[in-house]
Design a protein around this nucleic acid. Structure first.
Lengths: 223, 223
DNA sequence: GAGTGACTTGAACATCTGTCCAAGTCAAGT
DNA sequence: ACTTGACTTGGACAGATGTTCAAGTCACTC
């Protein structure tokens, strides 16, 4: 095969590992399968990585970064908060539902990390990445809709990540994207109640209608 | 070893598989490891189960049933809705946080099921069990606090399962039980807004304070 | 107490896995 | 041209895993 410097070869192997593992599961990502996917002979993998675990760590790092970088900087400005939130939720969901294999692989990596000493930090890095990304999205929403949040953004981020995780998992199992998206819009409605106009005062529409906390979760809203 | 009828031996092997897999992960639950854990020789496993997959399916069925049966029938009666909900949440969380290995195994089984044709139905059965259990809990709350729900209980159950799943996963990773429980109490606050007194009329305390939707998620509430 | 059939045993087999390594190939510098 | 060293190759090895099987053991019935 083509010769190339180790650094480049490593990237190629990580890409191949990602392809195999997303398609067939983390268990299928054997050294041989990755080498074959990259069109490279067996020994190359151990020339580029000391361990199989080092390869897996590199793969985990890559997928975490890839899920994180979606910084959602392209939020239209000047929208009302509820609209900005809905927009962000649609974008997040699109990037999840379009990458089923990767999502499933993420969960596989999480559980593998929690069992294996060598993959120790992988799961924590994944979550820190997700919390940071969610915080960033919240701040982008605040900026786009000119609101701030009535709680620490990082604290809200934890809520967002937990709920998104929960619905993603359910969707992976039952394949019902519509229900998942409806649930996420429910989260959006809740988030809207946590916004505060930038110049201070009270929450946007505090006591008008508590059902606003979950408009899309209302059967009438989507059915 | 002691002789025993196949049916009984099967139960023993499922138990052993559960022990090994909860302790060391699903990958560690090899035929040999399970046989050793049960104090039985290798051939017995294939005498009782046609496949390793059949053993895993039986194990999955057992753990699903075990997580489901916690019907929470012992809810004190006559409580105000918010209190009944908090009580139920504490109980649910206690049964989760007390069985870390089993929880982790559940997620491992879910991902394994989504990758393997042989374990096809395992994940869906898990979720159907959880949704049913959540529905049961919601009805128990309704009965204990003499309220009904402003949405289909099954629809709320999906929300509950998603959020509980999300916080459980985060807790498995970061080990922060306090934050998880706080998040679940936030869910509880939200659920309280979905209750309706049994004789009809409006929601319990609809417009008084929207912050009630997440009282425990408020930093001041727990810190 | 002999026989029957349910249960048990552990060796054996084929396959797969991560890892190693001796030999090979190639590009660049002298 | 030749040397050096980075990169590649694929065979070899040890260990683990699922599965099979012929032989053994025991309880129970007639």
């Amino acid at each position: 095969m083509n010769r190339m410097p180790v650094a480049e070869r490593r990237e190629q192997l990580v890409e191949a590992a990602l392809t195999v593992a997303s398609r067939d599961g983390i268990e299928a990502a054997t050294v041989r399968a990755v080498a074959a996917e990259a069109g490279v002979s067996l020994g190359v993998v151990h020339y580029c990585f000391q361990d199989k675990d080092e390869l897996l760590r590199a793969m985990a790092h890559a997928i975490t970064e890839r899920n994180t970088v979606r910084g959602l900087e392209d939020l239209p400005q000047g929208l009302p908060p509820a609209t900005a939130i809905e927009y962000a939720i649609e974008a997040v969901w699109a990037s999840i539902s379009g990458t089923r294999g990767s999502q499933l692989l993420s969960y596989e990596l999480t559980t593998a990390s929690l069992r294996s000493a060598e993959l120790n930090k992988v799961a924590m890095e994944q979550y820190e990445g997700q919390w940071a990304a969610a915080t960033q999205v919240l701040e982008a929403i605040g900026h786009a809709a000119d609101v701030s949040w009535s709680m620490d953004a990082e604290e809200i981020a934890r809520i967002v990540v937990a709920v998104v995780d929960g619905y993603s998992l359910a969707w992976l199992v039952d394949g019902d994207a519509e229900k998942a998206l409806r649930g996420l819009h429910g989260l959006g409605g809740y988030l809207a109640t946590l916004t505060v106009p930038r110049d201070g005062a009270a929450a946007t529409e505090p006591a008008t209608d508590p059902a606003l906390a979950a408009p899309a979760a209302d059967p009438a809203g989507a059915a």
